[in-house]
Design a protein around this nucleic acid. Structure first.
Lengths: 381, 381
DNA sequence: AGATAATTTGCAAACGTTTGCGAGATGCTT
DNA sequence: AAGCATCTCGCAAACGTTTGCAAATTATCT
């Protein structure tokens, strides 16, 4: 092992001795250096016989004969350090695969370059695209992501918050569990100066940073689309009534119906999951009332509704029309693909990230931000 | 802010002064202590006026008059420390919301209690259930997870590995990108003593820790199921041919067909994504050859195939049968639900996790482990 | 040449823990 | 009363960085 490293180093060395005058190129950090071999050798040996798995600033400093602080500054391209020195340092650091110890940096600088992300569950078309999006941006900016699932469980939620605090995350993206009422745990984050961006399911109190979907607008668009198509009897299915997301969508949807003063008949139902949505739709389709359109406020409900329709053998949109609010993935699985109002987790992620960066840069509290809703036409209505 | 903390502390204190003889209960860490107020007050004030956001061992030690090492040991329930002292320490730590600084612990102990997880993308029914599963177990064992997406991009993959090294993760769960040939980056992890468990798409060389789906068996089961149903003409669609997962499934599937020496006709195709699968199926359905069964080796392919079938207006299984290898989510979206051979990401996650724990406990390299495949009957064949 | 300025580098403290070792205090044995 | 074991606790070093400040060196200016 030690020999392997020495060998590796010498290979780098010897290749350079073949081009001793190669000039220093600051962009690639490769070049020529000229310290005395015997000294270097003895030191290198000494260091590596002690512990050869990790290269540290200290190790580099002992090999090169500079102090640790010089090495540190050289690697950060600090103006105090001369080009010649930087050249030597960077070269050796590269040869020895130096990689700064994140814990030490965190400890010293007090910021971790890590974000926490808490969602009820990761196995969800919406959250996973949100996370994917945030991860993408974070990586670009040199941040890592710690993912946490609350499982809609309040205790787990608090444990997760604790984990974030212990890891001194730089910021937290948080989606509340559906039954989380007490957000004191989240407020504690603020005390510790951990910036928190709430998304999707957000607390109702003011003074927090939140990003949301344009749920009200989404409800309106769906209703408008149905009315424009001059449908007669609409079955609208919404989710858990104590979620603000449900309230917003339902209120907007129903209000639009009333305001347009149409003769369209509206039937409203609530389903807690796919299966209950399936049953509801199934039972309505067996009644005498002729339903010509179904509106589903979420993917989960859409899945159930479609099953019921398929069971019944109805074809879309000939026998019945359907429209949903969705992320887009599920609607694309069927033929004809389902018309939906798009609420993109991916875009919400982008928005949340820019808001986080703004927070870290100093702006304290920013007014609630929204991702626009827009209609995506499939062939289902 | 400072006042708030003092107030909080005094509330805790005063509530205890009402029950001065409450006995020490080591399991709840609550109890009575009796140090002199004025001393405590002056110290507390002094400390908090300096920096009141974070409670540290030092702070507790100064308030209580014990050394830092005593505080540290007391909080870990070290036998050297007397019950009385532990009582005082734990009580104050609780009152001040002490939370150990993870960076400092990591730096000192050289293990981070963080696992890395690298997948091509997180937005995927299979990977997200894998991650969800690993996250669940990790949290139970006090580990956090850093999620990384390679996006099937080799550079990103290496960057991510670097991040893991810099964060000194305790272990890494890794799924190779589809075009990753050079795994030297992963071997470097081993040098740094970072245990790596490969899953799903694993390197072909030996001596590494891998967990896989029983892909060969899955292919066999699918083939056997089709033969048992006495189908005449089967269109089998596989994925990217240079993935070992494809090779295994295809080889097993085809071998089973041959070995049974049946008269069933087998047509083999390859599709790189959903859309190409849709086109392939679509064009076959338009030919004169009467295909009565379609086999799809993955969810992606299944989605495409089903679209083609729906477009054509065929009904399942009356006009055509279909069977897939899948995680189970997609097959459940249709009616009748699709019969599939289950390869559960969730179970794979559990397996990977136990293997990781075994690795950390010392066992060096464990023979490749598999998650069993089993048939889940829908109504599609 | 001497003084001053500019450049280059090193010293040492700090971040918050953990832990081997040793010291003082207490209790027990003969 | 002396010896010894046991119980508590503190000292100090270490983990790998970053950074204010001072020191040493070199260049520049009268």
């Amino acid at each position: 092992m030690r020999d392997a490293l020495l060998l590796k180093y010498f290979m780098v060395k010897s290749s350079e001795f073949q081009h001793p005058q190669k000039s220093f190129n600051s962009s690639t950090h490769k070049g020529y250096n000229s310290f005395v071999l015997p000294y270097f050798l003895s030191n290198l040996y000494q260091r590596f016989s002690k512990n050869m798995t990790n290269t540290t600033l200290k190790k580099i400093s002992e090999v090169l004969g500079f102090s640790i602080s010089t090495i540190s500054r050289a690697l950060k391209n600090h103006p105090d350090i001369s080009i010649k020195t930087k050249q030597k340092v960077i070269e050796l650091a590269l040869a020895l695969d130096y990689e700064p110890n994140a814990s030490a940096v965190q400890l010293r600088t007090r910021h971790s370059k890590i974000f926490g992300v808490m969602v009820p569950t990761i196995s969800n078309f919406f959250y996973d695209s949100f996370i994917a999006s945030v991860e993408e941006e974070s990586r670009k900016q040199g941040f890592s992501l710690i993912i946490l699932q609350s499982g809609d469980n309040i205790e787990t939620e608090n444990e997760n918050l604790k984990l974030c605090r212990q890891n001194r995350v730089s910021g937290l993206f948080a989606c509340l569990g559906s039954n989380t009422k007490d957000i004191s745990g989240f407020l504690k984050m603020k005390e510790q100066d951990i910036k928190t961006i709430f998304f999707d399911k957000v607390p109702e109190i003011d003074g927090l940073n939140k990003v949301c979907m344009a749920d009200t607008r989404a409800g309106e668009i769906a209703a408008e689309t149905i009315l424009r198509a001059k449908k007669k009897t609409v079955l609208a299915i919404f989710g858990n009534t104590n979620l603000s997301i449900t309230k917003k969508r339902e209120t907007a949807f129903c209000a639009t119906f009333k305001s347009k003063n149409s003769k369209t008949k509206l039937l409203v139902e609530h389903a807690s999951n796919s299966e209950s949505a399936r049953k509801i739709v199934s039972s309505w389709l067996n009644k005498k009332i002729l339903i010509d359109t179904i509106f589903c406020m979420s993917d989960e409900i859409l899945i159930g509704a479609l099953k019921a329709i398929q069971e019944k053998g109805f074809s879309i949109p000939a026998d019945i029309s359907i429209i949903a609010i969705s992320n887009g993935f599920i609607p694309g699985l069927y033929h004809p693909s389902i018309t939906y109002v798009e609420t993109s987790g991916y875009q919400l992620g982008k928005l949340a990230f820019t808001q986080m960066m703004a927070c870290l840069a100093g702006s304290d509290t920013i007014p609630e931000q929204m991702v626009e809703a827009k209609l995506v036409n499939g062939g289902s209505i």
